[in-house]
Design a protein around this nucleic acid. Structure first.
Lengths: 341, 341
DNA sequence: TTGTAAGCGTTATCAA
DNA sequence: TTGATAACGCTTACAA
């Protein structure tokens, strides 16, 4: 049996430096309340012992963790990674640590993760989108945990949000599609259940359809999880009909990439034979040929601002004002005029 | 001012159920040591109060966090996401929680993350690759923190590892390239500094070059961070020379995707004009046209086994035996015979 | 099967 | 400026 090597404690440091534990604690947390000489002595004791504060003990005593939790739908899609990166950088600047977990787009999993993070003492929570069971909001409220929603702005959500208007963004893109003469549109959407971003994007298309005096019932929609292959398969299904659409609007760039690549396989020229649009403007959108016409989302800006707002909520214990960020259409080559045939 | 609502404690539950705190604790941790009737009473008290155990307090008392930390190079690349998903699922099954952070491929950041995770009481650590400063290994050893390396198997690393032989895998693929008649190879590699996976893959190609009696000095290599666009740019540089390579081997699929897409832009037919290979076999590899010939890595198997091994290390306090996983070449269309021209 | 009570390593209040 | 000391909420011998 190897001997156990318990980590050195505040007490060890205090003894070695010939001071009380309170003084050591002060050296760590409010160094300006300790005289130079003492501080130095403590400092070297800390280094000699290789002391690191025990996180759990600190949390218990201070009732603060300096930890922010974030629950994202998936780690497998770069969309969230980028925004979260900015989020975490900003947190780090303010001395906070980020705890991430992913819900795999499952509401039940998300709820479990929320409880876990709260039990672990997260000082605040970042959530994606507004769609979740009311009792979760009540739980958060009862526990008095500051929480903020990102990726979807809504002035009247239960929680303040920093994000963009998914519906308006997609509406604008659909208008552009109509302007180019398209009339037979189809949508490859993400799963809308429990996902307001997906639902609102779809609603945006429907708004435009109605606005043009067309029948929203006539709009073909395939819902499928956000994976390249699913986009490809949905596209194939759409295009193998008697009167295929002239434009396929996709719920995000991943789905659109699948559609685009499958179009190649099917010998369809984009945008001559069919137009394809995406959403998010990830790296892939720029590199595909034809490059993807899509909606640019300010992921990094969103992450950074979300961090600032959440820290504000945590430290001031005040509800944050939400913030409406703007998206814009990036016109590239995958969207063209409708084939007049 | 709103009234503070402190979270209910074990004590609250005990009082409400008319038992001692010890009994409530047992209901939570060793339910079989409590009689049915009592357990039920406690259970409903817990529900009525909406009690959740305080993590920090539990950690302090039990000296276990049931938390495993993992530090990966990046969240922005799906390669790690998939393996980590399996890792986390397996951990979850055993009641452990995963704490992930990313180092952005920076050794200094990785070290900081390791210290943070240890301070937070991680029961064990998953690290990617073997390349790191010796004092980090010493720190881990002093603190007696079980740690395991994944994504790179090496029988004589400082830490046990579960992964594959990056060098042998790439060697095998290079041999296949040579078998197809290629003689002018080039490599688009990831940055090798501090990244043994990247370095070993490159070494694998060099081994094959030497084995064929060719001069390894003659092998053209571009090192660049793993991003689609970097792959594209490196490819363009490679192909705009007087005597361009007939085959470009890429350090991973992301780089290869960039190369492939740029080839299209340049009007080069793959594999007729130039062959391209990848590494990892991510989703994108299958969907690209031509589909990518690459090395399949058992990410999910690796994640699952790493979790099992690490839990074993944590619970038995015994060093785990590493495990050598196997990769295999997936032949698709991006690699063809050398153009005899 | 259940209860009592002693820690666990900090922070923070109050005195000195 | 520093030192005692009481929390913090839980687990776990040990006792009953």
């Amino acid at each position: 049996m190897s001997k156990l090597k318990p980590a050195p404690t505040l007490d060890d440091v205090a003894r070695k430096a010939g001071v009380s534990t309170a003084t050591v604690s002060r050296c760590l947390n409010t160094p300006d309340r300790v005289v130079e000489a003492t501080r130095k002595r403590v400092q070297s004791a800390i280094e000699a012992l290789g002391y690191t504060p025990n996180f759990a003990a600190r949390v218990m005593a201070a009732k603060r963790t300096f930890t922010i939790g974030a629950i994202i739908p998936t780690m497998e899609n770069a969309i969230f990674a980028r925004g979260l990166q900015a989020f975490q950088e900003e947190l780090h600047q303010h001395g906070y640590t980020l705890l991430v977990s992913s819900s795999a787009y499952k509401p039940a999993t998300e709820e479990e993760q929320i409880r876990t993070l709260v039990a672990r003492g997260a000082d605040g929570l970042l959530l994606i989108g507004h769609d979740r069971a009311p009792h979760i909001y009540e739980f958060l409220q009862r526990r008095d945990i500051p929480a903020l929603v990102a990726w979807s702005f809504s002035p009247d959500g239960r929680l303040p949000s920093i994000g963009f208007d998914n519906r308006a963004a997609m509406y604008e893109l659909a208008q552009r599609v109509f302007d180019l003469g398209h009339r037979r549109l189809a949508v490859i959407s993400g799963i809308t259940h429990g996902n307001d971003r997906a639902r609102l994007r779809l609603d945006g298309v429907r708004d435009a359809v109605r606005q043009r005096g067309l029948d929203p019932q006539g709009l073909q929609v395939i819902e499928t999880p956000y994976e390249i292959e699913n986009g490809a398969d949905a596209f194939a299904r759409l295009m193998s009909q008697d009167t295929p659409p002239t434009a396929v609007m996709c719920g995000n760039d991943v789905l659109a990439a699948g559609a685009l690549l499958r179009a190649q396989d099917m010998g369809l020229k984009v945008p001559q034979d069919v137009s394809i649009t995406g959403f998010d403007d990830i790296e892939l959108a720029r590199i595909l040929r034809p490059a993807l016409t899509t909606v640019h989302v300010p992921h990094r800006e969103m992450g950074g601002k979300a961090a600032k707002a959440l820290i504000e909520m945590v430290e001031k214990r005040a509800p944050a004002a939400g913030e409406h960020l703007f998206t814009h259409i990036v016109e590239r080559q995958s969207l063209g005029p409708a084939n007049s045939a």
